[in-house]
Amino acid sequence: MPLAFYKKPALVVYVTCGDPDLATTREIVLAAIEAGADVIELGVPFSDPVADGPVIQRASERALKHGTSLAQVLTLAAEVRVQAQSTGLIIFSYLNPILQMGMEKFCKVTRAAGVDGVLVTDLPVEEAGEYLRAMRKYDLAPVFLAAPTSPDGRLKRIAEASRGFVYAVSRTGVTGTRQELASDAKKLVKRLRRVTKLPIALGFGISTAEQFAEVGEFADAVVVGSAIVEHIERNRGREAAAVGEFVRTLLAGAQLSVAAR
């Protein structure tokens, strides 16, 4: 099962598919894998990304301008899978594009593409019954977001419904880079450890090698999203190379920090 974290900490890379175009997304993803990413989150652009900050909002707008669709993202996933057998692949989407495709069809196509898991940002675990049944039927791992404000009972429910790993959100708010990591993050991971044996990936706001190393000390994996998308935005024409370099910097920082200890 590719949804495994081989390194400690492992690196989960998010990209908004279709930004700047699907062919380039494919190159970016392969470059990130080549540079050492363990899991790739393939973001499906949505017109109303309420959980995202300005960086991913802009990426979604760019991707939608030329009509990037969920179906196209799943085709891209299948292509990536052919070239990268041991990398974990996750579809990261808002609920509505999935509903329009149909939950059953979505799971079927996603499974056939060789994807391992799915994260639906705006589907709370409380409303996820039908989704969880379909995910189980097609042997896909549902990943849910756990927030610092979630009470213990809810964390337990999230952990029980999740497969592969639990995605811990470092602080309240939307996606986007931050200078400092809230002390919320460490506390949340600790609380999650009490209710689950699944690995825990921490995301939201992580953009530097130092932060990557810092988080790596208490979480099993680190999700980097907006910082990746920002590199794509800033390096027109050499997106894949820029992302590859950035991923290597992140991982090198963590190794230095481990060596220092």
Binding site: F46, L64, S69, N96, P97, Q100, D122
Partner: peptide
């Protein structure tokens, strides 16, 4: 956060 009638395209974009 609401399931209702929505003006959208065939891909689910609003």
């Amino acid at each position: 956060g609401t399931y209702s009638y929505v003006l959208q395209d065939s891909g689910g974009q609003i």
